[in-house]
Design a protein around this nucleic acid. Structure first.
Lengths: 232, 232
DNA sequence: CGACACCTTGAAGAGGTTCAAGAAATGTGG
DNA sequence: CCACATTTCTTGAACCTCTTCAAGGTGTCG
């Protein structure tokens, strides 16, 4: 039932590499339990006490922040092997919602345990730092996207990013099934759902993409790449 | 010449609180040297090998990322007591530029030393995690700003944020001297310098702000606050 | 004092939003 | 398994915000 990290096929995504057998044994104690999250429900919500980081074992999530006045911003989409909950460290409370976009399962890694172990295993310490830093760099990229790109470029960048991450997990490098709505994509990319839909249609007209609802087939990946590498 | 961290008046901004005298002694070894950075020059640049984190002792910085096609996004403005360089941890190379906007001085904290010490001092370990997490949460806020706010709201949010951070450092809560150009503000906020200028003028017309070049006086801070708390 | 960078303002234009209506897919309950 | 309700997606047309282009003003530094 519970698969040890040391035997998990996602280990290279979540855990440091190059550990000694001794260290590998200890690492197995990081994950205390698994938790299933139904599509549409929350792994954690803004304000929840922070206790653990979560590695996605299977499924797909969005994270989002909201404001009192009802504004809503999707801050990212997360897939297998990625870590959620980093936002909670600073204040001991989560500052965003993590919502499953399909039935999912996560590995619960109590923060206290991670902290203790990374004082013993410097490779783990380094790994935790890297995960945090990687998220900062990822968000820099989103800021570039939101701050300086136009609608077509944003969507192209988002699709390329998704397909590349899926490809790294053994899925097709040209075909994907979106787990999110046009509205969620729009929220992430700072545009309205109608604009997302129109841009999909334009890509289809241009022969870059085949769009059937949430099934996408990328016909011309170079064209997508060119879109984001060219100044308007 | 070199002021020990334990005696630095910015200690509460950079360093963990509640350390034992013994731990305080060790903390002093984190900062190996100070480095002056002239206005306009870089503390580090994209591609530079990552070796240290930097705490701002005095001055003001911007961080920015660029792309091959000449796009440019300011990812943040940093002031005394704030930490830079976190982006470099993940890949051992910096992924943004840190540029001084006025003559500045930073405390160099070699990453190796921080890592070693935070294995010994769990308060330091926790502190490093918090700093990284805080940056992630800050960037979530910027994503909300860029993804869902309009020009006036963005500028209002930016000004409130700046003045609040300055206030926390003992400066006025209503008056400030900008260290950056309209273009840099615009890059940060995802708008053109003309729009920044126009929005300043509008705020002045509305009696919210006095604007004389880079000297700003906030006349109605509640009005600014209301601007960002109201849906369009 | 002159050169340069920075800022302001106007007018025209483009890109994206809003509002609206209908189509397609998905889920629900009988 | 089908009928119906609901959610999601697409598309059109009018509108609005911000950008672009342009010109002139202001401040700063050698």
């Amino acid at each position: 039932m519970k698969v040890a990290c040391s035997k998990c096929n996602l280990r290279e995504l979540c855990m440091p590499v190059g550990l000694s057998p001794d260290e590998l044994d200890k690492i197995d104690e990081v994950v205390t339990l698994r938790r299933k999250v139904k599509r549409g429900s929350a792994l954690f919500r803004t304000g929840d006490p922070f206790q653990a980081l979560y590695a996605i074992r299977s499924g797909f999530f969005k994270t989002r922040i909201g404001t009192e006045d009802g504004r809503d911003q999707v801050t990212g989409f997360q897939m297998a092997g990625e870590i959620m909950g980093l936002d909670g460290i600073v204040s001991d409370h989560h500052s965003c919602d993590a919502i499953a976009l399909e039935d999912s399962e996560v590995c619960v890694m109590p923060y206290e345990r991670i902290s203790e172990l990374s004082r013993e295993i410097s490779a783990l310490q380094r790994h935790v730092h890297r995960i945090l830093s990687r998220e900062i760099v990822r968000e820099h990229g989103v800021m570039l996207l939101l701050g300086s790109m136009r609608a077509e470029e944003r969507l192209a960048a988002c699709l390329l990013n998704l397909v590349q991450r899926l490809h790294a997990r053994g899925f097709s490098g040209s075909e994907l099934r979106l787990r999110m709505t046009r509205e969620e994509i729009g929220s992430y990319l700072g545009m309205k759902l109608e604009t997302v839909s129109r841009t999909f249609s334009k890509f289809a007209d241009d022969g870059i993409l085949q769009v059937h609802q949430r099934h996408l087939r990328i016909l011309d990946i170079d064209a997508l790449q060119r879109l984001i590498n060219q100044q308007p």
